[in-house]
């Protein structure tokens, strides 16, 4: 792989920050989003980091890294961070407050892949808001590309193949594929870097294309699912302290677990 042949696309999603406890809104129809901190989906952050690392490790391999996000206008904050971390260009697809299902997202992304002429998509295995874990697989299906999901390690071999290590029950599984390819990232693939100030300032000058959902009017974005209600999980019953082993055994019997 001597020539610059990788054109990486990294789709990223703006979600409620991982550290914030989500709360159900008063009408019980969705998760409350007003006044709540939003950040990049952690798995997507790992995807950005991996793309940048591939580029840093082998400069001659990567032609470009393009970040794309479908979301409200504020999603440009996370795109700016992607650019600061090392993406070259970006696209914001303003969806206003429309919530897209994975299939619709995959269809939009397919068009972005075609437009950007990408041959490698690296994206989070799932977004932590809906936990669907669908989009990467659907995108690979729509593109008719191979997919390597839940990547814990990504390696490029001399013969042009990509080896992806996945953590599975009882060990590791290595899958090998040629480009073009969709990779979805797992938690232990890497630890994302901080956004440096100088890079953040430079990122302002990097290109950010702004599109809207109406630019994808040929795509069927209609939802297939209807949310009936959203509920908080049952609160856990508090623990009790016991004074002796006998008492513990009694309590366990009471709870019918032994």
């Amino acid at each position: 792989m001597a020539s610059k042949q990788l054109r990486i696309l990294v789709p990223v999603k703006r979600v409620i920050d991982y550290q914030i406890k989500p709360r159900v809104n008063k009408t019980g129809t969705a998760v409350e989003t007003t006044g709540v901190k939003f950040s990049i989906n952690p798995f997507d952050d790992i995807a950005v980091e991996e793309a940048v690392r591939i580029k840093e490790k082998n400069k001659s391999l990567v032609e470009s890294i393009h970040a794309v996000s479908i979301g409200p206008a504020k999603a440009q904050d996370i795109l700016r961070n992607c650019l600061a971390k090392g993406a070259d260009t970006s696209t914001l697809i303003d969806s206003k407050d429309v919530v897209l299902e994975p299939l619709a997202v995959a269809k939009v992304l397919k068009q972005v892949v075609e437009k950007q002429n990408s041959n490698l998509v690296i994206m989070g295995k799932q977004a932590i808001d809906d936990d669907c874990n669908n989009t990467g697989q659907m995108l690979a299906g729509l593109l008719n590309w191979p997919q390597a999901t839940n990547a814990a390690k990504v390696e490029f071999t001399d013969n042009g193949k990509v080896n992806v290590t996945r953590e599975v029950d009882g060990g590791e599984e290595v899958v090998s594929a040629s480009l073009p390819l969709v990779i979805t990232t797992d938690l232990r693939l890497n630890v994302p870097r901080y956004v440096g100030l100088q890079n953040l300032m430079k990122a302002k000058k990097k290109p950010m294309e702004k599109l809207a959902l109406k630019d994808f009017s040929n795509v069927d974005l209609e939802p297939r699912l209807k949310v009936l209600s959203v509920e908080e999980p049952q609160p856990r019953a508090p623990g009790v302290k016991v004074n002796s082993v006998d008492e513990l055994v009694d309590k366990l019997k009471e709870a019918k677990v032994i």
Binding site: P42, Y194, L197
Partner: peptide
């Protein structure tokens, strides 16, 4: 503030937390 602190060369390098996890880590 950060931009002008960099321009005035008061600050040599710096990072900004982009999410709550990074904020705690910093």
């Amino acid at each position: 503030f950060l931009e002008s602190a960099m321009e005035e060369e008061l600050v040599v390098d710096g990072v900004v937390a982009q999410d709550e996890t990074e904020l705690k880590n910093l």
